[in-house]
């Protein structure tokens, strides 16, 4: 995805939203990497985690490009993250689910405040992807994969 609009008057608020989003995407990638390397996930779930991780990387890349275009500086990826100790595959999936629900809800919340219309659309397209991640993780956890009729996730 490219953010094709011309940022005639980028606002600091929009840039702050992008910066926060990039940090969340970095954390999600690290969480899936840790989960995939934990040895606690079966092969199919590792494949799922790896695929989802790649999509978060795509989100980060697009957001960093947009932020740069607006004159901002994308935040550097932290050297490490404080993840909880994962005792089981279920622990990992539940932790990932929490991140994904937060991400979907955060992007949804940004729709209300973003000034740049092309950012609104881009954010919705990412929100939708996170919502799909939520559905798949919930399905893997034998939970209702589509628990609400309207975002945000509860």
């Amino acid at each position: 995805m490219s953010f094709s609009s011309i940022y005639a008057a980028p606002t600091q608020a929009d840039m702050d939203i992008l910066t926060a989003a990039i940090k969340a995407e970095q954390k999600a990638q690290a969480a899936y990497a840790a989960g995939a390397a934990s040895g606690k996930l079966d092969a199919a779930t590792v494949a799922l985690a790896t695929k989802i991780m790649g999509q978060h990387a795509e989100h980060e890349k697009a957001e960093a490009a947009a932020l740069t275009k607006m004159g901002g500086t994308p935040p550097a990826k932290p050297a490490s993250f404080d993840f909880p100790a994962f005792g089981s595959a279920e622990d990992i999936l539940k932790y990932a689910l929490g991140l994904e629900q937060d991400a979907a809800n955060t992007y949804f919340g940004a729709v209300k405040t973003l000034q740049d219309n092309s950012l609104v659309l881009a954010v919705i397209s990412i929100q939708n992807d996170e919502a799909q991640h939520v559905a798949l993780l919930r399905s893997a956890l034998k939970m209702d994969p589509s628990p609400v009729s309207f975002l945000p996730f509860k």
């Binding site: 999509q55 990412i126 798949l136 609400v148």
Partner: peptide, 26 residues
Amino acid sequence: VGVEATHVAILSAALQKDPIPTAFVT
């Protein structure tokens, strides 16, 4: 639309199709 997107993923999975073929769901 976020909810419709979950329907898409669930139906795709049920059809043995890739449920998340793209990172930007439009």
